[in-house]
């Protein structure tokens, strides 16, 4: 299985820096990260409680992100504190799109493909349960898991909808939109290598086309001066830079360079016959950089 995975990811040798380290990282299990739900408990109190129970945690910089180095239980959610909604298991890379969006309690936010809710609940925490988040997902079972996480974490500023993000009307315009698009999921390989199914070039293209349709719909729902954060957890440029290129050229959105406090590289400048002049405005997080999953992020504005 490992050899198959290595073969699969070889196609990215020309675009992923420090490629041998990248490949080596795929063979090590991804650690768990947690985010304190400061809507319910102070960071200090929760960390003290978890340390007392035998957890060993390492904070990443000044972020509300803690790598679980050691845990006294099989699953990091097998605690009273988790049941009470005091923390959420969320990979550091998955926090990056929300940091790029930087929502405040003044915002009206659309989360177009929200389940299972890592980013929705993080946004609600940053917004202190104020403002408005419309969290959407097309799949009923995924909506149920999203609703469960919202309930456990005590999130009260979210409206849930079940719509097709490619075509649906959400009935209003938003100041900020998160389009964390369904993708081929290559960046979560380390989380579940057994369940990983790679896709071929044609399938990457197809996914890219669906992502473009979502982007177009997102753009239709964006206020003047508003921003869209586009993110995927995959590496293929057809699902990343190509989609951003479409948004710039066909939807007249403007890329914005944002800083996030997580190590990353810029986007790729070319893939096959396509070039991406805006690549320096894109963000790519790879697993060998900070021991996380992989993530692509771009921020675009309607001017």
């Amino acid at each position: 299985m490992e050899e198959k995975a290595i073969d699969y990811f070889r196609k990215y040798e020309s675009i992923i820096p420090d490629f041998e380290r990248f490949l080596a990282s795929l063979l090590t299990p991804q650690p768990y990260w947690l985010r304190v739900n400061t809507l319910k408990i102070s960071t200090q109190k929760l960390i003290e409680r978890l340390l007392q129970k035998g957890f060993v945690l390492e904070q990443f910089g000044n972020l509300n992100a803690y790598k679980i180095i050691e845990k006294p239980v099989k699953h990091p959610g097998a605690t009273l504190e988790y049941s009470l909604g005091y923390y959420y298991i969320q990979d550091l890379s998955s926090m990056a799109p929300v940091l790029a969006l930087n929502p405040s309690n003044e915002d009206t936010v659309l989360d177009m493909a929200a389940a299972p809710g890592s980013k929705t609940t993080m946004m609600a925490e940053l917004m202190r349960n104020e403002g408005l988040i419309v969290a959407n997902d097309i799949n009923f079972n995924r909506i149920k898991s999203l609703a469960g996480n919202i309930e456990r974490l005590g999130i009260t500023d979210v409206i849930l909808t079940q719509k097709d993000a490619r075509v649906a009307s959400f009935g209003l315009k938003f100041s900020k939109i998160l389009l964390d698009a369904p993708c081929s999921g290559e960046g979560v390989y380390r989380k579940n290598p057994w369940g990983f199914k790679g896709v071929n070039e044609r399938q990457h293209r197809y996914l890219g086309m669906q992502q473009m349709r979502m982007f177009k719909n997102a753009s239709n729902h964006l206020e003047e001066g508003g921003i869209i954060v586009y993110s995927t957890c995959t590496y293929h440029p057809y699902e990343n830079e190509s989609v951003v290129k479409y948004a710039i050229e066909k939807l007249n959105l403007a890329p914005i360079k944002v800083k996030i406090p997580i190590p990353h590289t810029v986007g790729v400048d070319r893939w096959k016959d396509e070039t991406y002049e805006f690549h320096e405005d894109c963000i790519r997080i790879y697993p060998h950089m900070v021991d996380t999953g992989g993530m692509f992020i771009a921020v675009l504005a309607k001017e």
Binding site: T108, N129, E130, G131, L132, I133, V134, I143, A147, I150, E151, G154, I155, T156, D157, V158, I159, L160, T161, Q162, K163, S169, F170, G171, L172
Partner: peptide, 14 residues
């Protein structure tokens, strides 16, 4: 949150 009348709501708040 900021309550706005939008259609087809599945769930709202808690």
């Amino acid at each position: 949150g900021k309550y706005l009348e939008i259609g087809d709501i599945e769930l709202i708040g808690i």
